[in-house]
Amino acid sequence: MKDFFNGIADLFVNVLFAPFDALRALELENWFSANIFSWIFMAIGFVAMVYWMLELKKYDANGEEDKSISSHSFL
């Protein structure tokens, strides 16, 4: 069992976390290149939020949304 858990540790440390080690090396050289993934994820989130707000505005303008006061019969 010890070899099994050492194999799992080796997989994570040497294979799956290798990209993070490369990013750690970039951090010493340039702040922007080290945080490029953060900027990409922020841009994707911003575009998704704008798209979602435009879709909500479109459905609100078409009158397709149910705007009844009570959402359940027991209320």
Rank of each mutant, 00 (worst) to 15 (best):
N30V: 03
G63V: 00
A25R: 07
A34W: 02
R24Y: 04
N62M: 13
S33V: 15
V13C: 08
S70V: 06
K57W: 08
D10L: 07
V13E: 04
K67T: 08
D60E: 11
M1A: 13
A34E: 03
L54A: 10
D21T: 00
F20R: 06
D10H: 09
A25P: 00
R24L: 07
L16C: 01
L23G: 03
V47T: 07
I69A: 05
L75C: 03
D21F: 04
E65I: 11
L23C: 06
K2D: 14
Y59N: 11
K67N: 02
I44H: 01
F20H: 04
L26H: 05
A22T: 12
N30R: 10
E55C: 07
S33E: 10
S71G: 09
F12W: 04
S73I: 03
V47W: 02
A61H: 11
S70C: 10
I69P: 01
K58L: 04
I69L: 05
I8M: 01
L11P: 00
N6Y: 06
F17C: 12
E29W: 02
E65R: 12
A22N: 10
A61R: 14
V13R: 09
L23F: 09
W52H: 14
I44A: 02
D3E: 15
E27C: 11
I44W: 02
I8C: 00
W31D: 05
A34I: 08
E64V: 01
S68L: 04
A48K: 01
G63I: 01
L23K: 06
D66I: 00
A25Y: 03
L28T: 15
D60C: 14
V47H: 03
I8A: 04
Y59E: 08
S71Y: 05
M49I: 11
S71W: 05
S33L: 15
N30D: 10
F32C: 10
E65M: 11
F32Y: 13
M1N: 09
F5P: 01
N30C: 08
I8W: 03
D60W: 13
H72L: 11
W52D: 11
K58H: 04
A22C: 08
F4M: 14
F17M: 15
I8Q: 00
G63K: 07
F5G: 05
L56C: 06
A61D: 12
S70G: 09
L54R: 09
F32M: 12
A43S: 15
N35L: 13
I36R: 08
S38R: 12
L56M: 04
W52V: 15
E55L: 09
F32S: 14
F74V: 11
L11T: 01
P19E: 00
E55F: 03
